[in-house]
């Protein structure tokens, strides 16, 4: 290695170092370059399409179970019973956000757009149970009992009406049929996912 090369080596080291230091110095003295967001005080604006926590509007939801079927990680569970007016009534609708990967497939699948992403992204918890979101706040058993009762009432009413009409037709054979049992399992159309 010749002397020239030796000195060149040193020169190159110095020049490139100085070049780099010029850039870092420029950043160092320019306060406008700071890009940190002061998180709890400052928040970034969540864009419209942001896929945050899921929210289901249970008033709109038709319990069609499309979301349950499409979710790759099975984190939605729901149970619905057929109500007196033949519509499905949700007994419970839970999303385990501890398992959800916010992929958005369920939202895309929802035919009535009741399931939506919110802008929420903060939910730290020391208890996994807290990570299961319940969208139906009443107790599932109560709802089922109530729906069963309503179904039974409706059935009774229908039977009465039928009986009345039958009685009108054939008053001789006036004998009311038995009311259906109050057991919710007997409510038709119940399904569970």
């Amino acid at each position: 290695m010749g002397l020239k090369e030796y000195l060149n080596d040193i020169m190159e080291a110095v020049v490139t170092t100085v070049k780099g230091m010029r850039i870092t110095a420029a950043y160092g003295v320019d306060p406008k370059e700071e890009v940190t967001l002061q998180y709890p005080e400052e928040r970034w604006e969540v864009p419209e399409r942001f896929r945050g926590f899921l929210h289901n509007d249970i008033k709109v939801c038709t319990s069609c179970t499309m979301c349950v079927k499409v979710c790759p990680v099975d984190c939605i569970s729901l149970e619905a019973v057929r109500g007196a007016d033949k519509k499905m009534v949700l007994a419970f609708y839970d999303i385990n956000i501890g398992r959800c990967m916010y992929c958005g497939l369920c939202v895309e699948a929802c035919p009535v757009k009741s399931l939506k992403h919110t802008g929420g992204y903060e939910r730290a918890s020391v208890d996994r149970g807290e990570l299961i979101l319940h969208f139906v706040h009443e107790d599932a058993a109560e709802i089922k009992a109530r729906v069963a009762r309503q179904v039974a009432e409706a059935a009774a009413k229908a039977a009465e009406a039928q009986a009345a009409s039958r009685a009108a037709e054939a008053p001789a054979a006036a004998k009311s049929p038995e009311a259906p049992p109050a057991d919710p399992k007997a409510a038709k159309g119940e399904h569970r996912e």
Partner: peptide, 23 residues
């Protein structure tokens, strides 16, 4: 995040297209 709603796991493409047009 603007186009697909997430910052790391984008899940943007779909079979047959993409999940949403450019906003």
């Amino acid at each position: 995040e603007m186009i697909c709603g997430n910052r790391l796991t984008y899940n943007y493409a779909r079979i047959g297209g993409v999940s949403g047009d450019a906003p």
